[in-house]
């Protein structure tokens, strides 16, 4: 029942977002039907583009899971960007420093990126638990700490020719594998797609089937009742943000040593912010997050094509996403509408 309601809410938000996008296209004198057809074809029209959509969705799924996990524990983390950067930095550093067979290399890279993200998540978690520092403030600050850490570390230790980016990740340290690239005709898709799916399954199990998930959700729903039950609330908050950070760190690895071939400095990755939208639209459930990130993946990889074919600015794609966020955030309205419709149907019967 709840799942159905969430689905209805999400679809309503998406449809209203698309409608608003259509209005904007009309306002600049373009044909919305044409615009949308190129937007979706850009994301889905051939196997290569589907691969790119999946590659975009991979990172979004992981950061979206990170957000959803924190939200479920009642914490409003916005630190996914910084955690991605730290995860990516750890992955890049290892990729450029060690020389090992590919599978060992990738295992170490994934573990290191998780750890780096986890630390970056645990710090605000600890500050919250110990000193009641609000996680919004501390995660934003840590985003910038991560930004400047990358800014100084990459040129100092990992650059090749250019000052603004790291050296190219060697093939044996990249999540990109030839067979997958070949199936998808040379797209950006990489092993991260399996990491993301696996993470979604693990998180679903943790949330729904484990003692840890029970405690974390109890803290998120009602911390007073959790205290009453003897659950260590501060510890669970710190743990939740740590796990959330680990997920975002993994997302960083899939982006910096999977999707991309090197690490640029001076960029706070937008996936960290889009993750909030993904989690909202996905109603903080792992399945919802996967579906929402796929949808956002289509929009992201299709907007360039739409711009090329019709002259509609790619920012329309971002605007649609922004509007969807607004509608998803005001989902109470849809829930009311849904309840109203249900009541009406029942009365008719």
């Amino acid at each position: 029942m709840k799942g159905l309601k969430d689905l209805f809410t999400a679809l309503a938000a998406v449809i209203l977002g698309l409608l608003a996008g259509a209005v904007l296209m009309l306002a600049i004198g373009a044909n919305p039907l044409e615009g949308f057809s190129y937007l979706f074809r850009g994301g889905l029209m051939n196997i290569e583009r589907i691969g790119n959509t999946l590659a975009t969705a991979t990172t979004l799924t992981l950061t979206g899971l990170a957000m959803a996990f924190a939200f479920r524990t009642g914490l409003f983390s916005i630190g996914a960007s910084g955690q991605m950067l730290m995860g990516g930095l750890a992955a890049t550093a290892i990729g450029l420093s060690l020389q090992l067979p590919k599978w060992e290399m990738l295992t170490i890279i994934l573990i290191a990126s998780m750890l780096a993200g986890a630390i970056w998540g645990f710090i605000p978690g600890y500050l919250k638990a110990r000193f009641n520092v609000h996680e919004v403030v501390s995660t934003i600050m840590l985003n910038w700490v991560a930004y400047w850490t990358v800014y100084y570390t990459v040129p100092a230790y990992f650059k090749a020719k250019l000052e603004t980016e790291s050296a190219r990740i060697p093939d044996f340290a990249s999540l990109k594998v030839p067979w997958l690239t070949e199936i998808f005709k040379g797209s950006f898709i990489n092993l991260g797609v399996f990491v993301a799916l696996g993470a979604a399954i693990v998180i679903a199990i943790v949330l729904n089937r484990t003692v840890l998930g029970y405690e974390l959700k109890a803290v998120g729903f009602n911390r007073h009742a959790a205290e009453f039950a003897g659950i260590n609330v501060p510890k669970n908050m710190a743990l939740s943000l740590g796990i959330s950070g680990a997920l975002a760190g993994l997302g960083g690895a899939t982006y910096y040593v999977g999707y991309a071939v090197n690490m640029q400095i001076g960029v706070l990755p937008s996936q960290g912010m889009d993750a909030i939208a993904v989690a909202l639209l996905g109603a903080n459930s792992p399945t919802g997050v996967v579906l929402a990130s796929l949808f956002f993946g289509v929009l992201h990889s299709g907007k360039g094509f739409m711009n090329a074919m019709t002259g509609i600015p790619p920012e329309i794609g971002d605007t649609i996403i922004a509007i969807i966020i607004y509608f998803a955030a005001t989902s109470v309205l849809f829930t009311r509408l849904f309840d109203g419709l249900k009541a009406k149907l029942r009365r008719k019967q």
Partner: peptide
């Protein structure tokens, strides 16, 4: 409702 139950559970 505050202490005794997690209402969403």
């Amino acid at each position: 409702q505050r202490r005794g139950l997690v209402l969403d559970y």
